[in-house]
């Protein structure tokens, strides 16, 4: 698997957020993206996820342009996880069912429970009202939605912001463990110093310029 970003540009009115951004990631890569607030890191991930259109440039998955894929199929393979995940429906089950629904599959409860266990959420929480969950629990359910079907590329948009140490460790361990097993690439926008220290590849977005280097 190879995800290629070619000459991406994002402009709002007359302001250029970034220009000529090109890079690629492959299986097992972990790219850490840093930069000032408002530098366009999140927008970059959203463009890669296909949730926002760039003003120029292309994103390719295995040398095929993202819009040549069936949209749902592309987003299942390039999965975007967000800071402070908003849960939908009434229960955790509603959230963990959606990845099955978009694939026209019957929800596999066994698989849902395995993932909940890995996220250190009790099994009987499957039908728990989402409004009774803590912020950390909500975020774990949010990330579980992205991992229940392992993607080819996992996009993490500051998913650790505001979480306590234990929750961070749990989420981190699961993502690492699943990456080792399924070999997906990770693009992670972060301000988290631990993550930055452990980074394999670093990309810094600043003043519309992107600098890529091995850490």
């Amino acid at each position: 698997m190879k995800l290629t970003v070619e000459n991406l540009q994002m402009k709002y009115d007359q302001t250029t957020l970034f220009d000529n951004v090109s890079f690629s990631v492959q299986d097992d890569d972990w790219l850490t993206i840093t930069g000032e607030s408002g530098s366009g890191k999140s927008t970059l991930l959203k463009i890669i996820a296909g949730l926002v259109d760039a003003t120029a440039g292309t994103v390719k998955l295995n040398d095929k342009a993202q819009w040549d894929y069936e949209i749902s199929d592309y987003r299942q393979q390039v999965s975007y996880a967000v800071q402070s995940a908003q849960l939908f429906g009434e229960t955790i089950r509603d959230n963990l069912d959606l990845p099955f629904v978009v694939r026209d599959q019957e929800p596999d409860v066994e698989r849902q429970l395995t993932l909940m266990h890995a996220m250190e959420l009790p099994e009987d929480y499957l039908d728990k009202d989402i409004h009774e969950l803590s912020g950390g629990q909500k975020q774990r359910v949010g990330v579980a939605r992205n991992l229940i079907f392992p993607p080819k590329v996992l996009l993490l948009d500051e998913i650790m912001t505001g979480l306590d140490g234990a929750t961070k460790t749990t989420i981190w361990a699961l993502i690492k463990q699943m990456q080792e097993k399924y070999h997906f690439a990770v693009l992670s926008v972060t301000h988290d110093s631990d993550e930055i220290n452990q980074a394999q590849w670093m990309m810094h977005v600043n003043d519309g310029k992107v600098v890529l280097d091995e850490h």
Partner: peptide, 19 residues
């Protein structure tokens, strides 16, 4: 809008994302 976008990000069609 955040919830709708998260559903879209998981591969939901606009109809499904609209809930």
């Amino acid at each position: 809008q955040t919830i709708v976008q998260e559903r879209l990000a998981l591969g939901a069609t606009p109809k499904l994302a609209t809930g």
